[in-house]
Amino acid sequence: MSERTAPRTAPLRARAEIDLAALRANVRALRAHAPGAAVMAVVKSEAYGHGAVPCARAAVAAGASWLGTATPEEALALRDAGLPGRIMCWLWTPGGPWREAIEAELDVSVSGMWALEEVVEAARGADRPARVQLKADTGLGRGGCQPGDDWAALVREALRAEAEGLLRVTGLWSHFACADEPGHPSIAAQLAVFREMVGYAEGQGVRPEVRHIANSPATLTLPESHFDLVRTGIATYGISPSPELGTPADFGLRPVMTLSASLALVKHVPGGHGVSYGHRYVTPGETTLGLVPLGYADGIPRHASSAGPVLVEGKWRTIAGRVAMDQFVVDLGGDEPAAGADAVLFGPGDRGEPTAEDWAQAAGTIAYEIVTRIGTRVPRVYVNEEQDG
């Protein structure tokens, strides 16, 4: 096993261990779920909090032939780090770095006429064609072009620009609203609209390299949605997109991040002792308290106050009272681990520790948010960097 961190002279206060072997295995498992399609590993938001560049490299090594980001800045950073191959970015605002994206050979998403006009102008300035993917709003109601006259106009003008050598329409795509809710009627409806919009564009002469709509839940459960490419976000990191669909193990996935900290203090207190701000927790009797040096400034949800689970010396503990900015307390029930003992907030779960899904349930949110919100004060420590075998 290899491990890489910034040089240090003292033990880490806390760490998010990122298992790149697990990530590579997840990518291979996802490829097996969609054997007829290419896989795009989505590494937006610093790879859902795991670290974009190391995770992108691991995903490519495991066979992901595309990388996906939300913002162009995220995609350009991958290019600057030397990531080759196809990289797509989709969240644009007027005046964005279109020319830089074209020169970096990124695939850019276009949802409306203003974006098409800006990318065409940038292509003229760069004196090279842009790689453009037209996004269809099939029912999510966020980005994407509306069906009907708007889509017809966008396709027409994209084909006009393509004929002038200013762009190449490399893809047609959309995004599900409820693929994580099995049987939701919007799933079939969106698939039907997507097929219609793709059929119209192709009937007008668009020849896309890829057509794609499947996100993580659709990749795992809707083979009819796979088309030419699947975009796997949270599943790449070994987290189920929905407990209703199954656990990570049900899909052959393993969580990649383990978050832990060293206990900063263990002390005896009497019964009736208030703990943390507001005294929302008062010790029911004489006990020991452990201080965990992580707080909401590190991404620990304040909504998990009095609820978040932590493994200390083989036992689950629960946060006692409110999560503060930099720390929280657990009631150790009289046990006396040494200061510096490991407090594991979440991980794969196979060593008895809580999982990100357990934290999501405690905080009333989704596991996506739990891993993505872990802040930059928590060092990422990468293990198993070498390719398997």
Rank of each mutant, 00 (worst) to 15 (best):
K315R: 15
V329G: 00
V371P: 01
R131M: 05
D342L: 14
A25Q: 09
A339G: 14
V275S: 01
R57Q: 15
R24W: 05
G347V: 04
A104N: 07
E118S: 08
C89D: 05
A341W: 02
R380L: 14
R57K: 15
R373T: 07
E73Q: 14
L265Y: 07
D335G: 09
P337A: 14
R280I: 07
K315Y: 12
A136M: 15
S260E: 08
T365K: 10
V39H: 02
A136T: 05
A59E: 09
A324P: 00
V119Y: 02
P379I: 08
D107P: 02
G295N: 12
G125C: 06
T372V: 02
E369G: 00
P147W: 11
L83C: 07
Q204N: 01
G364D: 05
Y277V: 11
W359T: 01
R195H: 13
S225L: 09
P379W: 03
P270E: 11
A261M: 06
R377D: 12
A41P: 09
A59G: 13
S216A: 10
I234S: 03
L332R: 13
D180P: 02
G183L: 10
P35H: 06
A214T: 08
P54K: 15
M40C: 14
A158R: 08
E3T: 13
G144I: 00
A177P: 01
G285S: 11
V193W: 02
